[in-house]
Write a protein that binds this DNA or RNA. Sequence first.
RNA 1: UGACGCGAGCGGG
Length: 237
Amino acid sequence: VVAWTGMITAYVQCKEYLLAQKCFAKMQEEGPKPNIVSWNAIIATYARHGDGVPALECFQNMQINGLKPNKVTFSAILKACCCIGAIEQGRLIHEQVIESGLQSDIVVRNTLVDLYARSGNFEEAHVVCNGLASRNLLTWGSIIAGHAQCGNVKLALQCLENMQCEGVKPDGVIFSSILAACSHAGLVDLGVTYFKSMSDYHGILPDICHYTCMVDLLSRSGYLNEAENLLQIIQPD
RNA sequence: UGACGCGAGCGGG
């Protein structure tokens, strides 16, 4: 079983998802019975591909085969639900998570937060987020990105403050979300302020993504000269 | 016990 599963995971690591899936099919036909790790590996291939439907089928199938999902299974399948916007499925799986007592796992919780935040269900996202244990940078990142995507700059900025109050330091990804939100809302001054604060207060070097955001922000609002000036600053690469 | 899982933004195409 370990040998077969090793084959599958090797294919997954090389991004040879089709080969991994073929290998799994062959294992089911003529190899030993797949164990939890084999199933998790194959579910992960679908989840990474954004193929939510086959991922869910596998998830059902493994349970039919009498295997109980573990925290690895849950994080993979929740990611799959997130990709295809299967919020209802996600809620059902959320219940299963609670039944299994795995809701305290930080990775599982982050995938749940991500699922809810990206689908605009912020109340549920916050409930998961407030549930006991530690939030980390990734948890906040999901929530802020969710707010940013909904065009809710105020809430995104509020989250930024809240996370800093808790002693979590924002990283470059967080600022990308913030800048993007400002861009969509046409809040040029605010965006510029945060862009400056990155290097001034947070010790984060803006990367190409941030410059792209700023150019986008400036030119959308008609500050074409400023946008061109910024372009000059960026090192050709 | 672990061979499996672990979040993200803009624009363009």
